[in-house]
Simulated scan of single mutants.
Amino acid sequence: MNDNQRHAEKKAKIKAARDRMMAEKTDEKGLVIVHTGAGKGKSSSGFGMILRCIAHGMPCAVVQFIKGAWDTGERRLLTSHFGDLCQFHAMGEGFTWETQDRDRDIAAARAGWAKAKELIRDPAIRMVLLDEINIALRYEYLDLDEVLAFLRDEKPAMTHVVLTGRNARPDLIEAADLVTEMAAVKHPFRAGIKAQPGVEF
């Protein structure tokens, strides 16, 4: 048997095993998805999922909890080209070190959560991205138990909810269906390079 035949035989066995595994996966449900970790890419991944929903014609929505003051590329794209399929609500007022006003930050987070609940309750909306909500939960601007109870008890069965931000709370990680932790390996900011359009925003 030559190398090509061995390769084909090996791949055929892998394919047969994968096909059996995939045949057993028949359930569908709305997922609670968490993107966390110190590395870059948490929001970017969430927005990638939103674009997938749009490509499938699935109504979706975004609530931004922290970066609401930023003029981001994703906000421009979604509001100018896909407003019919994706609602976009920028509820934050900037990073906490910029506002320097805890009461204002709490009020903004609570307004964002009220809007998030309204959107999640709507069964026509298939995915809701809660961008940087983990920051609001970390600083206790929102009550974690309330958020978890809402996701458990009120989220429609087929609605996906994506929660992004560093330092996801352990109870949220436990409750989620899918959790990805972005690891920080190397970042240009440490070499004196500022945040740039198309990469960070």
Rank of each mutant, 00 (worst) to 15 (best):
A109V: 07
N134G: 05
G94K: 08
A108H: 05
Q100M: 14
H160V: 05
E181N: 01
A107W: 09
A108W: 04
A116F: 03
V162L: 14
G92F: 12
A124C: 08
L142C: 00
V162Y: 02
E181G: 00
D177Y: 13
E93T: 10
Q100R: 15
K117G: 00
T164N: 10
D105C: 13
T164F: 12
E174T: 13
A90P: 15
T96W: 15
F88E: 09
I125D: 02
L144P: 04
T159Q: 15
D153Q: 11
E98H: 15
W97H: 15
K155T: 01
I106F: 06
R110N: 13
I133G: 07
V128T: 11
M158K: 15
R104D: 10
L130I: 04
M158C: 12
D105Q: 14
I133E: 09
F88Q: 09
D153R: 03
F150T: 05
Y141W: 15
A109F: 12
T164I: 11
W113S: 02
A149Y: 01
K117D: 00
N134R: 03
R126D: 12
L144R: 06
A175K: 04
D145P: 03
A176E: 05
R126A: 15
H160K: 05
D122P: 05
A108K: 07
K115L: 08
D103F: 09
A149E: 11
V179R: 09
A136S: 12
F95H: 11
G92A: 11
R110S: 05
A107L: 13
G92E: 08
I125V: 14
K155M: 06
Y141I: 05
T96L: 14
N167C: 08
V162D: 04
E154V: 00
M91Y: 04
F150E: 06
F95E: 04
H89C: 07
G92M: 08
D131M: 00
W113Y: 02
I106Q: 04
D131V: 04
G94R: 09
E98M: 14
A114E: 13
F88T: 13
K115S: 04
D105T: 08
L142I: 01
A175D: 06
R138D: 12
A108Q: 09
E146M: 04
T164E: 12
E132I: 03
H160G: 02
D105V: 06
L172Y: 06
D122S: 08
E146Q: 09
I135C: 12
E174G: 05
L144K: 02
M127I: 13
Q100Y: 09
L119V: 01
T99V: 15
A176V: 06
F150K: 07
A149P: 01
A108G: 03
M158G: 11
E93A: 14
E174V: 09
A157G: 07
E140C: 07
E93R: 15
I120G: 00
R110E: 13
L137V: 04
G92C: 11
A168S: 13
E146F: 06
R166T: 02
M91F: 03
G112W: 04
I120S: 00
M127Q: 10
L119K: 00
L163C: 14
V161H: 00
A111V: 02
L137G: 02
M127L: 15
H160N: 14
L119E: 01
D105S: 13
D122Q: 07
T164G: 12
A149Q: 08
A114Y: 02
